[in-house]
Amino acid sequence: MIHYVKRKDLDTEKYNYCIENSLQSRVYAFSWYLDVVADHWDVLVLEEYKAVMPIPWKKKYGIKYVTQPYFCQQLGVFSIDTISKNQQEIFLKHIPKKYLKVTLSLNSKNILISNNLNRLNYFLKIPEDYKQLYKNFSKGRKHAIKVGEKEALEVKNTTANNLLRIHKKHYNFTIPEDKLIKLVKIANTKKAVMVKGVFKAGVLLGGAIFIVSNTRIIYLFSVFTEEGRKFQASSFLISIMLKGKENIGKILDFEGGNLENIGRFYRSFGAKEEHYSVFKRTFL
């Protein structure tokens, strides 16, 4: 039996246990993460938290609708045991009709939905032997990394605020900065974040925010100055992450790849693709 549970009534311990131990586990679905990135969220719960599906929602002009939060690529059904296609469809049918419009990204371990939008993501398992991994890099990516090495780039810890200053100056689109800063702050208390900067002679050229779980390192947010792009700072940063002994055995999740040029960049590291569905429904 599937129940709709409001956030305030949620058994957070049981819910997070299900997310942590689910076959589809993703950091996006933990309660502490959704509390930051979602305006509101409730949960569909199967029996005693054997499976759950978080429902992030907003309200505008009196209309409630389900929508994917910023900084949250994949949600969907999370289950301790294998979920069949039929069970997954039952979860989706249980999304209340009070939500007149639904746009919800499932996770790559959920069954793909036919006649719905399917998206691409790229990932790379980090092995013990970086040299073996390096062999699979494209010729262009190897050259880019050598440019960074020749320019004596360094990767060091930095702050979200430093990266956001670069974003304001060098990018022409806005993001919910307050949510990103809060997310980094909360994730830091969970030891679930790394904020890395790429420096040349002490000058910050850009960097990235990585969200960390037991199994994945998510390339959540990155920015680079024009000089950083010139000196291939992004390629250099990713190569350093792939070399890190503390990252061995984890999956580097590039969190994207639908745009061809972005997908080509990730593939140049030997990254593999995975697909996930975006479930859509409307009564408007």
Rank of each mutant, 00 (worst) to 15 (best):
A29H: 08
S79F: 03
N136D: 12
F123I: 09
S234K: 15
V43A: 15
V155T: 10
K14D: 09
P96F: 01
K142Q: 04
V66H: 04
K58I: 02
F283P: 00
F265L: 07
D42H: 12
G148D: 01
N162G: 06
R216Y: 14
I251L: 10
G244K: 13
L23K: 15
E246D: 14
K139I: 01
C72L: 00
N258M: 12
K142F: 06
V184I: 14
T103N: 14
L112I: 06
N115V: 00
Q88P: 12
R119Q: 09
D253Q: 02
L163C: 11
K191H: 14
K135V: 05
Y134I: 01
A271C: 14
E255A: 07
V155N: 08
L112W: 08
E20R: 10
A144I: 02
A192S: 14
D39N: 10
S235I: 03
F279G: 04
E154A: 11
T174Q: 14
E227F: 07
K185H: 03
F231L: 15
L104P: 02
L133D: 08
S105H: 12
A192P: 07
S25G: 07
I19F: 13
N157T: 13
G244A: 06
E246Y: 14
L204K: 04
H275L: 10
N214A: 15
Q132T: 13
L220Y: 02
N110D: 07
I126M: 09
I111G: 01
G76N: 10
L92Y: 10
